[in-house]
Each structure stands twice: as structure tokens, then as C-alpha cells.
Amino acid sequence: MIQIFHLQKTYEGNNIPALSEINLHIQKGEFCYLCGPSGAGKSTLMKILMKMENYNQGQILIQGMNLAKIKESKIPYLRREIGVVFQDFKLLNRKTVFDNIAFPQEVVGKPRNEIKKKTWELLKYIGLAHKKDAYPLRLSGGEQQRVAIARALANDPSILLADEPMGNLDEEISMEIMGLFERANQYGATVLLATHNLSLTRRVMHRKIVLERGKLLAS
């Protein structure tokens, strides 16, 4: 599903590479943690996979698509294959919960009735059907993250990337959110979840990919 060969990334003006000699294979339907302290390169790797950042060396294949060769105009289509969840939620604060979840579906041009049906399904899935008309800033952090997950799943992506999704949430809410990722994984999504929360990775066991100072320590 995701294949990375000899990946190297150095930010301009920096001598030390943010990522170096990363070799990684993630199978279809796998659930992996991307672990490591702050500054280890987790977010950089996520951004590269989303084609939000370029890299200097190496090859990356996502579902057979070579990221180095993908045309600028085709990047949106790559992103539609990948759902993404951030620590700071990145919701559209001027749109309601319902509209936030409907939005990625409008982007891909789904028919209206299909959007409605899917959005309702997702609202029930995250347990926020009763708050469909609320605006994100009126919701708690945990609720906002649930909306962000629903949005990430709206177009049934084959890959779900989550960058410190529980970073701002307490333990109990984190486990609830974790449950949502687990279920998405059971429905078939390949999940790559970046976290520095070791207690979480101990409580729910999955393959761990460990990064430190831009290098792969364990996979």
C-alpha cells in the first residue's frame, strides 16, 4: 500500500536531514503507529505522503503511484485516496459539523443525496448526529477531533493518516478517538497514526515504526 525506499529530506537552510535513509513497507489494511519524540520527523513524513512537502532523494509508491512522478494537476486525486487527521483538527469553523463532513464529498462531486446519506452515516458513527448543526468552535476538543475523523473518512479513503490526533485530548477521550481509528481500520482502511504517547501504544497493540532524529530505529 505504502512503499518507501531510501527516502531523504533536508529542509532548505538546514544541514541535518529531517529524514534520512527511510525504508518502509506498510501493507494494505495494516494499522501502524509512527512513534518518536517531537522533531523526530513524523510530521515531515506525513506531509511528504500527502504531497504537501517534496523530498530530496528516494522513491515513494502509494497504491502503485510514484509520488516523484505525479503531476501537479493529479495531486488532488492522490489526496482523495488519503484521509488525514491533524492534532489541531483543521475544521472549517464557518461551516456546521454536517457541512464539514459533507465538504470533501462535494469536492469530489458526489450527488447531493449520496452526500446526505454518507454524512448521516458518519455523524452516527462518531456519535454526533445531535450536533450536526453546531459550529466547530462550539464543540469540545474531543468532539472536534471526531468531526475531523468523520471528514477524513467521508470519501472512503484507502489510507488514513493521523498526525498526533490525540495530542490535545485527555486519556479517556483519546481512547474513544482510538476506537474510531480501530473501526476505520476494521472497515479496511490502512491507518498510519503518528504519536509520542507511549502509554497509548502499549494499551492498544499495533506495529510500531519508530523514528528518531530523522532515522528509522525500528519497524
Binding site: 483543521k90 465538504f103 470533501p104 469536492v107 467521508a154
Partner: peptide
């Protein structure tokens, strides 16, 4: 940025 992330075309 959010629009780009969810795969909106230019």
C-alpha cells in the same frame, strides 16, 4: 489549505 488537503482541484 483544508480544501487542498481534502483533494480539491485548483
Amino acid at each position: 489549505e483544508i480544501k487542498k488537503l481534502v483533494g480539491a482541484t485548483r
